[in-house]
Write a protein that binds this DNA or RNA. Structure first.
Lengths: 211, 211
DNA sequence: CGGTATCCAAGCCGATACTG
DNA sequence: CAGTATCGGCTTGGATACCG
């Protein structure tokens, strides 16, 4: 029952930080960007966080109007419209952070990877591409629509994907940001595999800012 | 000599937070957006922060490559190119935070106000406006250039401003976001006062997200 | 001016245990 | 499944005092 501490600063940035500046808060928001999740899903996506802390952050975010709770076969948490407006902010922040010289090793959550794709999408590299993809990462399904310079990622499988890529976040990450060879990778590609390979090239590998 | 704690998450957002997620860090960046500052300037702009914390944050930000230190008649801190790339992120975050239902009362720093202007600028409301302003807030000088749908704010006075507005941050804030009457306000307007008044109308008053 | 030293309180981590 | 309760240990933040 902690009263959340405020900067007491009327600036918009400070007020934003009053709401989403506490530790783990923004990562919880990240995990909710593409759809509702349960408490347990959040816990396992955010490795190393105590249930205690998740619980408190959720309470604060709900109180602030960023997150809502619903009952849908158990409780689920989801972003409010205002919370959803953090999406572009997180994409921009992720784009900036991807250039950090520090590179922690660890697992990437499926949702974090999706934000990373949005952050690194290069419109010019997709100027002549128009395709719909289904990404399967574990039990999660995402739709990725590339439409000549624009990208839209949503949760849930698209109706008629041109290609389906099934793998795990780590492998997809490598295929997009690292070594792009498909051979031998634990990936299952169906549909138009040329288009699938094309997808891996519309994202830029972030270049670290020089120290 | 604290090793900064990391989320240990390779996601760009988490890596960004590793660098600028600690308390006060982003507000220090905000204060440096429009130019270098001294330790003491930072202390007084950020009301309620201990010198202790400013010192530690600066050390961390310097170590991370966000801030640089120079000697220029005393030490000054300034954003590195990478740090400067946080500018659009902060503008977006400020835009979001300005809609928070919570409204702390307190003083607005001059730099915070400048970011607020950028955050709330409405291109459509300036479609037919082209003017250069000088804003004087205490001893600080800023240039504001509005060029038909675009705004650019810089520190330091412009060469040939169309209008000069001298006041304090609180008053300017009211003139822009609140009651726009000039009468009786502690403001000194010189040059084209019609253009000056016009400036107050190219920004939107943020509407709070419904709780 | 530009910080460091010290101390205290609060918060987070991590584990574990427990409940509706 | 979805959390709350509690506890120890440690880390941070906040306040004040102080020093080159």
């Amino acid at each position: 029952m902690t009263a959340l501490r405020s900067y007491g600063d009327p600036c918009g940035i400070a007020r934003a930080l009053d709401v989403i500046g506490e530790r783990w808060a923004l990562l919880i928001v990240r995990e909710l960007l593409f759809g509702p999740k349960r408490f347990t899903d959040l816990r396992e996506a955010l490795t190393g966080v105590s249930p205690n802390v998740v619980s408190q952050r959720l309470r604060e975010l709900v109180a602030a109007g960023v997150v809502g709770r619903r009952k849908e076969g158990g409780r689920v948490y989801e972003l409010t419209p205002w919370g959803l407006d953090l999406h572009p902010v997180l994409v921009a922040l992720g784009k900036w952070g991807a250039r950090s010289p520090a590179r922690p090793k660890g697992r990437l959550s499926a949702d974090a990877l999706m934000v990373a794709l949005e952050s690194t999408f290069v419109p010019a590299q997709a100027a002549d591409l128009r395709a719909t993809y289904e990404l399967r990462l574990g039990h999660r399904r995402f739709s990725v629509e590339v439409d000549r310079g624009a990208i839209a990622i949503g949760s849930g499988a698209p109706r008629r994907p041109d290609a389906v890529v099934a793998t795990d976040p780590g492998t997809l990450r490598r295929l997009v940001f690292g070594d792009r060879r498909l051979a031998g990778a634990p990936v299952d590609v169906r549909g138009d595999s040329r288009l699938a390979r094309r997808l891996f090239r519309v994202f830029a590998r972030p270049r670290p800012a020089e120290a």
